[in-house]
Simulated scan of single mutants.
Amino acid sequence: MKSLLVNPGDVVVTDFGIYQHWSFVSDTVCSRGKPMLISATKRNGTVKEETWDTVTQGKNTYITKVQKVKAPSEILNTARSQIGKWKYSVESNNCEHFVKWASGLEVTSAQVVNTSAGLITGAVLVGVVAENPKFVHFLGGALLVAGIFLALTRASEKVTAE
């Protein structure tokens, strides 16, 4: 972890290439002095509070701006209430859904919405421009445009005063 100054309740985003993983900064630290993170992961299939290094896996991680309607302590209590209970699903209960839910926001995932829109747009484009397209063309076009749409759905880094 480079010198990233985080506070309990902050939302950090870890860049895993094609997708981003969203986590809450906990109010506890691990034995190595780094903050713990609370998140929903496919790796666990649920919500866990884990060490910074376990969650971020050494990938680029930064604080993102999320409009929260709850105090940090309430967010962390809400998040912890789902440890071992949240049933992870990439479509409806992923890390972004979890962060927004625990923050008291509308439960959506821009990553899921934009990827779905990209799949549909790509397939439609192939149908419009290709002469006699085959299934593989529809699939390739859908995946290409979905990847582009997903790449454009990056959480922005929170600007902090130095």
Rank of each mutant, 00 (worst) to 15 (best):
Q20C: 08
R43C: 03
V124P: 00
L152M: 15
T78K: 13
F149T: 02
S31C: 05
V66L: 15
A130I: 08
P35T: 06
K2P: 03
K100T: 01
T46W: 11
G127A: 12
L125Y: 07
F138H: 08
S156V: 10
G17I: 09
A155N: 15
A142Q: 02
V66H: 02
V69P: 00
V159R: 10
P35M: 08
Q20R: 06
R32S: 15
S156E: 14
E157R: 15
D27F: 09
K68P: 00
G127M: 05
A130S: 13
W86V: 00
T153L: 10
G122P: 00
F149L: 06
E49V: 05
K100R: 15
A40T: 07
L4P: 04
L152Y: 14
A146D: 03
V112Q: 11
T108N: 13
P133D: 05
V145H: 04
A146R: 05
G147V: 10
S3H: 10
K68L: 08
N77H: 04
K85P: 01
N77L: 11
G140S: 13
K85A: 07
S73I: 11
N94Q: 08
P8W: 06
V99N: 03
I83Q: 07
N114C: 04
D10V: 03
K42W: 11
K48D: 07
T56M: 07
N60D: 07
R43W: 08
N60I: 07
K100W: 10
